[in-house]
Design a protein around this nucleic acid. Structure first.
Length: 489
RNA sequence: GGCCUCAUCGUCUAACGGUUAGGACACAGGAUUUUCAUUCCUGUAAUCGGGGUUCGAUUCCCCGUGAGGCUGCCA
């Protein structure tokens, strides 16, 4: 199937849009079809410089690059495919041509009403508790006057003539059958007075010409679908299938807004979320596999996804589960990759980390302890700078390490560890020797390991004492124990 | 106001007439452990309300209620 994502370049890519794009991408992959990207820039005022590049780079980060249409090629924006151009502002003649055709066939009409009159008309209708709709004043214009004004070039729009007696029924892939009465459907503007099409005309023309089989879009479009269906009919085309996905909501169930939450996909990138985690989270918002699987890669989603299992109700965009997924995915990152990425990050703060041949051993110690890569450098800091050790840290009531005992324990640690040869400096040996000594001296594991770990790291919590001692090496371990003993005096 | 859509634990959701209403996140407790985290176990917690239909409704129908969307020469 050919599906598409058709954002407006009005700024950042909205997470709701990213989810819609994901669904469309999944269907295309699943059916061995194509996923197109089209840019809907028919509102010149709202278009923002650089927005297209931003959308493209976000999709790339997410792993759902388009197969056709607007895309990045060698770092520059390009268009690929035989149905282009894929940027609506470059297709104006096309929309004008079909608008003209509708006009000729009597399915549309010119309207000369000013913005002021329309506003006034709507206010009147509201005051009378009527639904605000165009009153068709211009359809009653004498033919002669109409032609004169057209010839004179008076500013006007083209409106769709909606048959009021019609009943519009269609089957949405997510919602099932939906029905609208023709008399509740407004005569939508198709072509604006500046010659640009509105979304409605552009969507129909483009999705037909680009041979889109399935339109996946937000629920906000559900009410205008009758107009689109009518347009396909009046143009003599077969309409695509539609799937209107539910909206993302704030905690208070209002439409997701940036006042309450980060809505730009790039903000989540900036916060350090893994694309796997965000995509997994977005897929699970409103969709479920029917099994109890929760962790999905894009490949697994492609396998399992179906529109029939997409929820009809809007979903609250609650980040707590995203954080859990992020933890799951960071732990799933192969150690080599985790270490590489962490090394670059850590080297920004501690340059010697860049040349640390044993970095991946250190990374392994915190792989299960971080949710974000960004937490890593702090947790590894003690490897690169001398820890600040205090008596308050070394002593620990819960572990029954008193200040009085510390002198004995630290000496015991120094003596025991000092006797272990450097070539036997492994976690197993350290554990064996240290625990044997503890037993001999009638000390608990906690009583000797807490001070050791604290002396080596200077932290109330960290990876385990044996692992840290091994990663630090014998020389540094003994030096830091000396440092801790000095603090006691 | 009109039209359309929706409604299960706090959150994401399962159960397509028959279940002690299931899972996950979060929360609480516990186990493991030298700390923290991970992991594992246990627990608290839901069918919006009212009518029908049916031997039997979370499920089907109707009416309310609530929420959302649309109601622009925005998309």
């Amino acid at each position: 199937m050919r599906t598409r994502f058709a954002p407006s370049p009005t700024g950042f890519l909205h997470v709701g849009g990213l989810r819609t794009a994901l669904f469309a991408w999944l269907i295309a992959r699943q059916t061995k079809g194509r996923f197109l990207l089209r840019i809907e820039d028919t509102d010149q005022i709202r278009s923002v410089e650089g927005a297209v590049e931003n959308i493209l780079s976000t999709l790339h980060w997410a792993g759902i690059d388009p197969d056709e249409g607007v895309m990045m090629r060698k770092g520059i924006m390009a268009q690929e495919g035989t149905k282009g151009p894929y940027i609506q502002s470059q297709r104006l003649e096309l929309y004008q041509k079909y608008a003209e055709q509708l006009l000729q066939n009597g399915h549309a009409y010119a309207c000369f009403c000013t913005a002021e009159r329309l506003t006034q008309m709507r206010e009147g209708q509201m005051a009378r508790k009527q639904a605000p709709m165009y009153d068709r004043l211009c359809t009653r214009l004498p033919k002669k006057e109409m032609e004169e004004r057209l010839a004179r070039g008076d500013p006007h729009v083209i409106r769709l003539l909606v048959p009021h007696e019609r009943v519009f029924t269609f089957t949405d892939k997510i919602r099932g059958e939906v029905t609208f009465q023709g008399h509740t459907v407004d005569d939508q503007v198709l072509l604006k007075s500046d010659g640009f099409p509105t979304y409605h005309l552009a969507h129909v023309v483009d999705d037909h010409l680009m041979e889109i089989d399935l339109v996946i879009r937000g629920e906000e479009w559900l009410s205008s679908t009758p107009k689109h269906l009518l347009l396909f009919e009046r143009l003599g085309w077969t309409p695509p299938k539609y799937a209107h996905v539910p909206l993302l909501l704030n905690k208070d169930r209002t439409k997701l807004s940036k006042r309450q939450q980060s809505v730009a996909a790039e903000e989540y990138i900036g916060k350090g979320y893994l694309p796997e985690a965000l995509m997994n989270f977005l897929a699970l918002l409103g969709w479920n596999p029917g099994s109890e699987q929760e962790i999905f890669s894009l490949a697994e989603l492609t396998e399992a996804f179906s529109l029939e299992r997409v929820q009809k109700a809007g979903a609250i965009f609650d980040l707590t589960k995203l954080d859990w997924l992020q933890g799951q995915w960071i732990r799933r990152l192969p150690l080599a990759e985790f270490a590489d990425r962490l090394q670059m990050l850590t080297a920004e703060r501690y340059p010697e980390a860049a040349h640390d041949a044993h970095f991946s051993e250190k990374a392994a110690l915190i792989h299960e302890r971080v949710t974000f890569l960004e937490e890593g450098p702090d947790m590894l800091a003690f490897f690169y700078v001398e820890p600040k050790v205090s008596v308050e840290l070394l002593a620990n009531a819960k572990q029954k390490v008193t200040k009085e005992l510390l002198t004995t324990i630290l000496k015991l640690l120094t003596d025991t560890l000092g006797k272990i040869p450097a070539d036997a400096w492994t976690t197993d040996t350290l554990k064996e020797k240290l625990l044997a000594q503890a037993k001999k001296q009638d000390l608990s594991q906690g009583q000797i390991l807490w001070p050791l770990r604290a002396a080596l790291t200077g932290l109330p919590y960290s990876p385990g004492a044996f692992e840290v001692a091994v990663a630090l090496g014998k020389k540094t371990t003994l030096a830091r124990l000396e440092g801790a003993r000095a603090v006691l005096e």
